[in-house]
Design a binder for these strands. Sequence first.
DNA 1: TCTGGGGTCCTAGGACCC
DNA 2: TCTGGGGTCCTAGGACCC
Length: 414
Amino acid sequence: MGKQDGRERQVTVGVIDSSTAPILHVDMDAFFASVELLDHPELVGKPVIVGHNSPRSIVTAATYEARKFGVNSALPMAIALRRCPQAIILEPHYERYQHYSKQVFSICDELTPAVERLGIDEAFLDVSGARSLFGSPQQVAELLRARVRAETGLVCSVGAAATKYVAKVASGLSKPDGLLVIPRDETVAFLHPLPINKLWGVGAKTEEVLRARGFSTIGQIAHADVDTLRRAVGDSGARRLHDLAWGRDDRVVHAGAEEKSVGHEVTFSTDVTDAGDLRRELLRLSNMVAVRLRRHGVLTRTVVLKLRYDDFTTITRSRTIAEPTDLGKIVYDEVRSILESEWAGRPVRLIGVRGEQLVHPDGVAPALWDDAADWREAESVMDAASDRFGRGAVRPAALLGHRATERPRLGQRD
DNA sequence: TCTGGGGTCCTAGGACCC
DNA sequence: TCTGGGGTCCTAGGACCC
């Protein structure tokens, strides 16, 4: 499905001058679900849901056949199955998605050096310098879509516009399997009839606030009284929404942006009240964070513990440490000590560890003596062993013998 | 209907320094 | 004795996005 839509749109843009629309937004269609269908061709055309089939799970991705029943990402699995009982549920396979993601991004990289990744299945491209090699923005977009389809078997949608924001809206409206070009001088006419939730940064809460004040379209935001808007969403929010509503967005495509934090968290299948269980999970998460820090070659200055209690209230407690670290033991010592001062026995639904304020080792003065040297050596050995024998091949002794009982009862794995 | 896991950005208050 | 304003860092929470 969607093929016809795509073809019609390509025809409608065939006569358009796309030279004023050099920012492309590429978005894979139903990405995880589509990858699963490559591995299960017999399920093509059926309602397929990707996600864990357990009580506290949510839908990770759904095919368009499943979406017809009102099944979308982030919907609780229980509700999804009520809406679409015949749906086929597939467990996610993140390594597969990563693999296809790399393929798609490397196609992008071959078309322009200005590629900014957004998560696993989206990117912005600035193709203003690609004209002599590959043609107009529209021609680059068509080439990109054709190559993605030919080389991966997957389908993507592309929006082309003068700004990132408009390109993103355009790709969304062209889905599935579409291409939509919005030349600069058509920007305002394109935006103004759209509903306010198409504004970047307007989610459920802000939409409610804006609707309560009588705003329902982007055009109304554009022509709004500034003070009314300011009272609704604050000073900077008002300015941002007003600019977006006129298509003003000066953010450039930023290639090679670095991550600003790394974290892991897990929701237990049943709430946890045992301190030992929490500590063991904390150790596991701390080590996962540390592995990623070392892999990125960065150190964290601020360690964050996150707890969600049984009533869904969520707290975060952070601590900035004297000596930035990439060691699981140091991260663990910090979050465990925060847990001890913060947690009084309330049932815990979710626990998480995050490292913020990432710095490069060169940016900090090397310590004259290094107490952590032994630990660094030990954990490097573990990294090497994990690379050779697979994740989980080596783990701290405190986690040994607990695997069956203390692994998260609802995790990324089956 | 009951809510995952990975992130980013913004706000706001308090500490601290000049 | 009572009183400034600006700048920066740290912390906590919340909205939002994919």
